[in-house]
């Protein structure tokens, strides 16, 4: 049993560092809690022989699935905890911005244009004399809504269409792939200028829908490739030989093995989509004032960067932290879904 060595090493580690957040997650094994509970560092087989009825072991055996295991893993992963806390913080900010600031982001005083920080206005003022802190807090809602909803929409559509195309192949694959190619062929900015300028409504959902429509082919390609790779694995043939139907093959055998690249690309796309919203706003076809968004503020601040860098830095910093948090989250989730890294 090749992994006994690993178990053996991980027990003293987990005992020594049971409260230590810095411990590398990959080394943690599921024996973490057992090691601390039983207070002994036996190799696994010995422990099993000595304590066949240990209740802790029974707990470990009961009800485990891929997602439960992933969750156990994630809870102990510092990267997941940090990114999770950041995202919770950002979501709270997006939902209830008034918890963080009582200043109205639309109330501006031109006299204070480009002024620096002062009491009650920690981030200073922008070109129009609006409070940068209030705008950064209030901008979270639009940016995060666009980023998260567009990513979720594109990832779901792309995974569904690309996955089905990859699994069934044949004419379905050809049709989906050619449609994806058509959307791929549309330059995103040109498409934005054309489509969004003819739609009178500037609702945030129009922008989300536009990004989903142009974004899904990228994820469909990734999903299709990942599904084709997973589909050819022996375990899929084996599952089929043991009587699994198509739905079961797709959902239980192929999807968990194909989801890693989709998560990675989706989290990177999330950052891109938030910046895309900014670009569209800059071109005047995305969100429009009085909507407050980081994208609008970043594009407005670009002109005056040399005179008043703080106007750009705060919304751009918020955007970077958001993107980073989601990428870290995606990374942690991907690792947790791969049992070999546990």
């Amino acid at each position: 049993m090749p992994d006994q060595g690993k178990y053996n090493e991980s027990d003293p580690l987990s005992e020594a560092g049971s409260g230590d957040e810095e411990m590398p997650s990959a080394v943690e094994s599921r024996t973490f809690d057992l090691g601390t509970m039983e207070g002994q560092t036996l190799i696994k087989a010995e422990r099993l022989a000595d304590h066949p009825e240990t209740p802790a072991l029974e707990d470990r055996v009961v009800a485990r699935s891929l997602w439960q295991d992933a969750w156990r893993d994630l809870r102990r992963n510092p990267i997941f905890i940090i990114s999770g806390l950041l995202i919770i913080f950002l979501v709270i900010m997006a939902l209830w911005p008034t918890l963080f600031t009582s200043t109205n982001p639309l109330k501006c005083d031109l006299a204070k244009s480009q002024a620096g920080a002062e009491s009650g206005h920690p981030f200073g003022f922008d070109n129009q004399g609006c409070d940068v802190y209030a705008r950064t807090v209030h901008g979270a809602r639009a940016s995060i809504t666009v980023g998260v909803c567009a990513t979720a929409g594109a990832a779901l559509t792309g995974t569904l269409l690309g996955g089905l195309a990859g699994f069934f192949g044949g004419w379905l694959d050809s049709v989906v792939s050619r449609i994806a190619d058509v959307f791929f062929g549309i330059p995103i900015l040109l498409g934005g200028l054309v489509f969004l300028s003819v739609i009178p409504s500037q609702s945030i959902w129009i922008v989300v829908a536009f990004i989903v429509v142009l974004g899904w082919p990228q994820l469909a390609r990734i999903a299709r490739g990942a599904v084709i790779t997973a589909k050819q694995q022996d375990y899929v043939t084996a599952a089929r030989a043991l009587g699994a139907g198509n739905a079961r093959l797709m959902l239980r055998h192929i999807l968990p093995n194909a989801v890693a690249p989709i998560i990675v690309v989706a989290t990177i796309a999330l950052g891109t989509y938030i910046s895309l919203e900014a670009t569209l706003s800059f071109l005047g076809v995305g969100l429009k004032p009085p909507t407050v968004s980081w994208g609008i503020d970043i594009s407005a601040a670009a002109d005056t960067f040399r005179n008043a860098p703080h106007i750009l830095l705060y919304p751009a910093g918020a955007l970077s932290i958001t993107v980073l948090a989601f990428i870290m989250l995606g990374d942690a989730v991907r690792d947790a879904l791969d049992p070999k890294l546990r």
């Binding site: 485990r64 891929l66 295991d69 375990y235 084996a238 239980r252 968990p256 093995n257 879904l337 049992p339």
Partner: peptide, 10 residues
């Protein structure tokens, strides 16, 4: 390769 790497044997 015939066992699915992401699911437990059980």
């Amino acid at each position: 390769s015939s066992l699915n790497p992401v699911h437990t044997v059980g």
